[in-house]
Amino acid sequence: MIKRGITVFALALLLAVPSAFAADGAAIVKKCGSCHKLTGPAAKTIKEVRERKAPDLFYAGSKFNKDWLVGYIQNPTVIRPAGTVYANHIKTTGDTDTVVTPPKCESKLSAGDAAAAADYLMTLKDPKMKTGVAKLGEFSNAKAKMLIIKTEACNGCHQIQGNGGVSCPTWEGIGKRLNPDWVYSFVQNPEYWDPKIWMGKRDLDEASVQLIVNFIAAQK
């Protein structure tokens, strides 16, 4: 009888342990608040932008793909070659600017904590963002490059397929990183997300936006 009681108790303990020790995503993410903004609104003045240490996360659930988030927060890599705000990481020698290596995110969460943090981050959504608007499918890579490189010159600021500027996020692996619906919204109106972003809003037609969204989604 006692043996049976112990066995039942042990089983109950085994079942209880995972939930008792399940990571609290909100608590983990709260620590990220020392660098990332976890509540809106976005910076509205240049002074506020210059004080930004890391990208805003208060709409992370709209912006990112969850699978990418889980991997990234276990082992962060450099996405913005000149830091979150490039203007804070330049050195002028003579008349030429160069990038001063920006600080890297030191977060290295365990797989379990990363999953919990990503679960929480995915709840931080902008309810106004339209979903289902990115129409992914077959597209002309040549036409996309003509638009992106020749017409809009996105590579002036972004590294695209290994070549391009450094003041904005690299497009390497961007298709894994970003939710296509968020890309659709950002490309149409970057200032909606970041009023003082140093990317000029383009007046693009629907076909051009979809072409850019498809090209970006294909950069895995």
């Binding site: 240049i46 002074k47 932008v49 210059r50 000149a82 490039y86 203007a87 330049i90 002028t92 003579g94 008349d95 030429t96 600017d97 160069t98 990038v99 010159a153 590579n155 002036g156 600021c157 070549n163 391009g164 500027g165 450094v166 003041s167 003082k196 140093w198 000029g200």
Partner: peptide, 25 residues
């Protein structure tokens, strides 16, 4: 402030056209 945020990335802090993006243009 506007120049240092929007223009410097290409035109450079000194305004000489030698910003951090310039080598890639």
């Amino acid at each position: 402030d506007n120049y240092n945020l929007y223009c410097v990335q290409c035109h450079g802090s000194a305004g000489t056209g030698k910003g951090i993006n310039a080598p890639f243009l």
